[in-house]
């Protein structure tokens, strides 16, 4: 690992100043992704601004029934929070489906959102990877790409975003609170991550010195019936091949509210707006679920090894919706 300057500021303001003063500096949360990538010489921060101990680690109910989640809340704490389990079960389930008990105890909400891809070429210095080193090409396209994206990718990068938690948050219309020395702004989570386009090295719209301070969940009636379905190569402790965060509300046999997001299929947590559009107002049943899944995956493009993900995603969407509506469908 390359040497770096280690700074542990006492509060948020000092952290914002510390990162602004140091080009090439990065925030350090639990370190479970950053330390790993530094050891592999993929991340080379000149300085680490250690925010792990900052008091951004509380979960507060907002007036009106929403939730404000500090950026340093550990994944394990958020997963077991009683309000999350009751009102946004999809979030608890997505967290518990990710990583291991040990990693969840270290991982923070901010770090989870900003974790980097698990595409093998990203950490392989003998291979071309535009995300790691712009201009070196994408060796995944002609190489091993079973795990690659089928939606939103491009000729420069086919890597997927690996977070489970982010998929649930995107489905739940969560908003990130972001601060820097220049001020603060709020970014809907669906707009935090970006598609690769010509600059796959940039995963998100954040500037290098911006700190995520919290994530807010708006109150949501539809979220009460929500679930996370993760399909992976083994039953536990593996990244998703395909995952679905879904919430649905059925009134008199008709879909009156629905939120769907997909993981493992795109460079960003993928909000399935087309599926939601098809479902809203449709009879709640197998036929509508299939039509919605087909509509969302219509623009999907597979590579030789990952085309299976398109059908897998369709089926996972249908299964997730079926699981939530059993007993109430037409």
């Amino acid at each position: 690992m390359r040497p770096f300057t280690y700074v542990r500021p006492p509060d948020v303001d000092a952290s914002l100043r510390a990162i602004a003063e140091r080009p090439g500096a990065r925030f350090l949360g639990g370190g479970t992704n950053l330390v790993d990538l530094m050891r592999q010489d993929v991340e080379r921060p000149a300085a680490l601004i250690d925010i792990f101990g900052l008091p951004l680690d509380t979960v507060e109910e907002l007036p009106g029934g929403g939730l404000r989640i500090g950026a340093l809340v550990r994944n394990s704490r958020l997963a077991v929070h009683p309000l999350v389990r009751e009102r946004w079960p999809v979030l608890s389930q997505a967290l518990l489906a990710g990583a291991s008990g040990q990693v969840r105890n270290m991982a923070t909400v901010g770090g989870n959102l900003l974790q980097r891809t698990r595409c093998l070429y990203f950490t392989d210095h003998t291979a071309g990877c535009n995300k790691r080193e712009p201009g070196t090409g994408c060796d995944a396209i002609g190489g091993f790409h079973r795990n690659a994206a089928v939606l939103g990718a491009g000729e420069h990068c086919v890597a997927t975003h690996p977070s489970d938690m982010a998929v649930a948050l995107v489905a739940l219309d969560a908003v990130a609170d972001v601060r820097s020395v220049r001020g603060s702004r709020r970014i809907p989570l669906a707009e935090l991550h970006r598609l690769p386009g010509e600059t796959p090295q940039r995963d998100t719209v954040l500037a290098a010195d911006e700190l995520i301070t919290a994530v807010e969940l708006p109150p949501s009636a539809v979220a009460a019936a929500s679930a996370y379905r993760k399909v992976r190569d083994r039953a536990s402790f593996a990244f998703a091949l395909v995952s679905v965060a879904a919430a649905i509300e059925v009134t008199d046999g008709v879909v009156s509210g629905v939120r769907i997001a997909l993981g493992g299929v795109a460079p960003k947590p993928w909000r399935a707006r087309e599926a939601e559009r098809v479902l809203t107002g449709a009879p709640a049943g197998e036929e509508s679920f299939r039509a919605a899944a087909a509509a969302e995956l219509a623009p999907a493009v597979g590579l030789p090894q990952n085309t299976f993900k398109i059908e897998l995603a369709r089926r996972a969407v249908v299964a997730a919706l079926r699981g939530l509506t059993e007993g109430s469908t037409a």
Partner: peptide
């Protein structure tokens, strides 16, 4: 609380 010590920097 259980953690993996390999991904933790000691200073943290």
């Amino acid at each position: 609380e259980r953690i993996v010590a390999c991904l933790a920097l000691a200073v943290q």
